[in-house]
Write a protein that binds this DNA or RNA. Structure first.
Lengths: 275, 275
DNA sequence: GAATTTCATTCTGTATATTGAACGACGATC
DNA sequence: GATCGTCGTTCAATATACAGAATGAAATTC
């Protein structure tokens, strides 16, 4: 009778692993809770959260209480439901304040966005497997291909991915294993992709012609914090057919030259700002 | 002999207290680390962080490692220094996505900002002692009085504070004790302030005429999520002398009417969005 | 409106996260 | 160029955060 079909069936094995390895498991749990609340489209109750993450309810309760006390999580005393609190905005502002890339990149991407009437992003390469959008600029005229600041993408996807593969200094075996996990609208074969990466090395920027999203062309140019380390990229996103007409070569050189300018500015002064 | 004079003299007694009371002290420590890194204008080393927060270095190291693993903290392997990582942006985006107030408020404050040529903010009331700026709109023409999204202020400061005092349902003793901790350019006396709060109750909005910042006038109108609970406020900020000329009464009614409209929209549908 | 499931929360013993000292390595100082 | 100070890191003992059962409250069902 009490059949209890497992609703979510996936009590977050990654979390279990992270908790096991860490010397501060409470922090892993807290991070998992925050991300779960972030993904959720509505406030969640204690049991739901615990079930979803594979946590013991009592432990989960203590985690939530601590997060509420720190103003990262909001608690509605009437409904007993939890959601993200505005405190997370403060951290984001602090990060942006200490980040020179954004201040320098914004005017450059604004200019390119206006001139070519498309969406331009600044992205930050975090770790070895993710990138985060940190600056955006959309031309009002185009029906905008929008991406919000804070969005995360797999490192190797689309044009940015080819840049990272070309300039990130990762081993071939690692590239191949990560490549297999990617989701594309129209996936390139691995050999085909390898060839495109090689071309990216030669020409200094990458193109994704409809692979990631059908009909959408993406350009990416690398930005170097130091000579050795590619830290960011500038990304232009437009409708493929429109781009062919409006002078792809001009966009390419504009993007590459802006990225180069940024690299110089970031590499120059070492002491102020740190990302 | 081992006198060990305390360098920073203030190893964060609040943190010590929070850790003591909590059943998940690691989370309090992690939050303190994040906030410290946020405030800092440069990456920090392990010892510096531990000293500043009154933590044992080894414990602090484990906290930092966990935060790095969760991509909330960046670690420079060369300099062994820690700073905030872009992962915090993702949480902020998630919060914004689940928040109907912002979407509804932005066009309204844009309109008021353009019409009266001043800075208009949407603020979120978090807990009993802080507000957070969640939306901003600056008129390009004025030399902008800027405030960034994510900025935190004491709940009772300036015009917003008078609104919270008037409509927040807090006890008089609590109001007085919190009032004493505030920092103003030109502090009002407590009795004077009480009278202004009473006036705010009657007229439905608040004015700060140069108290918080000399020469700057601030208006605030309350936004109600439910009949009982003031959850947000709309805030207009301008140069005092300019405001007197440009029709303060018109601004007042525009602000109050926008706040009322928001209250209706937020109170209406209960199920979508939650802040 | 009573019964029953589901929820949030408290409680207690134990596995373990935290502590403080010791280690090794780097950089500054004289 | 040797010494000293400071840094990041490891390790073993123990104070304690956490898992699981028990409790009470609140919906939900019949």
């Amino acid at each position: 009778m009490t059949e209890a079909p497992p609703r979510s069936a996936r009590p977050d094995r990654d979390l279990a692993h992270a908790v096991e390895a860490s010397k501060a498991p409470a922090i892993s749990r807290a991070a998992a809770v925050l991300r779960l609340l972030g993904k959720s489209h509505a406030p969640l109750g204690l049991q739901t959260i615990a079930r979803e993450l594979g946590l013991v309810p009592s432990t989960c309760l203590y985690v939530l209480r601590a997060l509420v006390a720190e103003e990262f999580v909001a608690f509605d005393a009437d409904t007993k439901r939890y959601s993200l609190e505005a405190g997370v905005l403060t951290l984001a502002r602090d990060w942006l304040a200490g980040n020179r890339f954004n201040d320098l990149a914004q005017p450059l991407i604004d200019r390119i966005s206006r001139r070519f009437e498309l969406t331009v992003l600044g992205v930050h390469i975090v770790g070895l497997d993710h990138i985060v959008v940190v600056a955006t600029s959309q031309s009002g005229t185009n029906f905008q291909l929008s991406a919000q600041v804070g969005s995360r993408f797999p490192a190797l996807i689309s044009a940015t991915g080819r840049c990272i593969a070309a300039f990130g200094g990762h081993s071939d075996v690692e590239l191949e294993s990560r490549f297999k996990t990617l989701r594309w609208d129209e996936p390139p074969g691995f050999d085909e992709w390898r060839a495109q990466v090689e071309q990216t090395k030669r020409q200094g920027f990458a193109i994704d012609a409809g692979n990631y999203i059908s009909g959408v062309t993406v350009l990416a140019a690398p930005v170097w914090k130091t000579r050795a380390k590619m830290s960011h990229a500038l990304v232009a996103i437009g409708i493929g057919s429109a781009l062919q007409r409006n002078g792809l070569p001009a966009l390419q050189s504009a993007l590459v030259s802006a990225a180069g300018e940024l690299s110089n500015q970031l590499g120059g002064q070492v002491s102020a700002g740190w990302n």
